Amino acid sequence: MTFTDTDTDTGTSTDAGTGTPSWNPEALEEILSNDAGRPVLFTNARIITMDPLIGTMNGADILFVGPLIVGVGPAIVTAAQDDGAIVVDCTGTTIVPAVVDTVALAGGRGRRSEHVATLTPGNTTDFLVLPDGIAADVPSAVAALVSRPDQVRALVAAGRPVRWAGTDVPGGPAAPETDIPAAPDLTGSPRLGVWIDREDFLHQELTADGRYDETRGGRPYAYQGRFWIDGDRIDYLDDLGFWAYGEFKGDELHHAGYVMKRG
């Protein structure tokens, strides 16, 4: 038998024998091994949907199948159990969107259909579960994710848990590296060489050592720096310190409004 101790301020539960965080461990195992497409229900939570029509609900449920939210509201639990759903008891927690559309929050989207990143049926299953005490609203919940990650009950991305009971879920996606990577050796890459825009204004040379050199309007060395290619994407870090972006489309390189072809 497993006993837990609970911190009443944050809702943190720990295994009395090991002191490690514990929150619905059986449900996590079921979700991770869910290859049959069973629905998953997070129940009995305060849900801040950020949807202007649905609003905030107490004692509510969120039902999803894979990466898609299919239901939000009270009393979904009965139907979900009939469908063989995996049920996660979220008593004492608040659920908020994990991706926040600040433009919508500031009134920059006039129609409900334009409000993205809300916990609305039909949207992507991206949400964050935190104890009520540290998730009064969306800003405080997001701040807690950064400042108190050990208190996160669940972080779900596209229907898959990536953080649970304060720790990263094994096998989940790794956070991107924050250090600037070394430029790879691009010798032999078909994307090296000089690229010229249609007006012959911009000449951009990409070299095998991961450096670029731009001539603009006949002005040599207008911009110089490093670049990285990832698939069809190219990222630039200028020696002046700013970042820029480009995209390869067939035999064209699109960058900052310019369309270039190999010279």
Rank of each mutant, 00 (worst) to 15 (best):
Pro220Glu: 11
Leu119Ser: 07
Thr49Tyr: 03
Leu202Lys: 10
Gly108Tyr: 09
Met57Trp: 04
Cys90Asn: 05
Gly133Cys: 11
Ala165Ser: 13
Ala174Asn: 08
Leu32Met: 12
Gly193Ala: 04
Arg38Ala: 13
Tyr221Ser: 15
Ile229Pro: 01
His203Ser: 13
Arg163Lys: 11
Tyr245Asn: 14
Ala175His: 10
Asn44Ser: 12
Asp232Trp: 02
Asp213Ile: 01
Thr125Gln: 02
Glu199Asn: 10
Gly108Val: 11
Val138Thr: 13
Thr167Ala: 15
Pro149Ala: 06
Ile234Val: 15
Val156Gln: 03
Ala45Val: 10
Thr187Trp: 11
Val40His: 03
Ser189Gln: 01
Val70Trp: 01
Gln204Phe: 00
Met50Arg: 04
Leu130Trp: 08
Arg112Glu: 10
Pro121Lys: 03
Arg153Cys: 12
Gln224Met: 14
Leu105Asn: 01
Leu206Val: 01
Leu240Asp: 14
Val142Cys: 04
Thr49Cys: 13
Thr14Glu: 08
Ala106Ile: 00
Gly217Tyr: 02
Gly246Lys: 02
Asn58Ile: 09
Asp235Asn: 14
Gln204Asp: 07
Pro121His: 01
Met260Gly: 01
Arg109Trp: 07
Ala141Trp: 02
Ile134Asp: 01
Leu240Ala: 14
Ala154Val: 05
Val129Ile: 14
Arg191Glu: 06
Ala144Lys: 05
Ala183Asp: 01
Trp243Phe: 15
Val70Met: 02
Ile180Leu: 15
Lys249Ile: 13
Ser33Ile: 07
Tyr236Ser: 03
Thr91Met: 12
Pro173Thr: 12
Ile196Glu: 08
Arg233His: 12
Leu237Ser: 09
Pro181Leu: 11
Leu145Tyr: 09
Pro181Cys: 09
Pro131Glu: 09
Ile31Arg: 00
Arg163Val: 11
Arg211Asp: 04
Pro97Arg: 02
Ala98Tyr: 09
Phe227Tyr: 15
Gly122Leu: 04
Arg226Thr: 15
Ala141Glu: 03
Arg262Met: 14
Arg163Phe: 10
Asp82Gln: 10
Thr91Leu: 11
Leu68Arg: 13
Ser140Gly: 04
Gly133Ala: 11
Leu32Phe: 06
Val146Ile: 14
His115Trp: 15
Gly55Ala: 09
Thr2Asn: 12
Phe3Arg: 10
Val162Asp: 07
Glu30Gly: 00
Gly133Gln: 06
Trp23Val: 00
Phe127Glu: 12
Asp185Gly: 05
Val100Glu: 02
Arg160Val: 15
Leu202Val: 14
Pro184Gly: 08
Thr10Val: 06
Gly159Leu: 11
Arg109Thr: 13
His255Lys: 08
Gly231Ala: 02
Val138Gly: 01
Asp239Lys: 02
Val116Tyr: 10
Gln204Ile: 03
Gly193His: 03
Thr43His: 05
Val194Phe: 02
Leu105Met: 15
Gly133His: 07
Pro176Thr: 08
Gly263Trp: 06
Asp200Lys: 08
Pro39Glu: 07
Gly11Asp: 08
Thr125Leu: 03
Val259Asp: 04
Ala158Leu: 12
Asp51Ser: 04
Thr4Phe: 10
Asp239Met: 09
Tyr245Leu: 10
Asp150Met: 13
Pro220Gln: 12
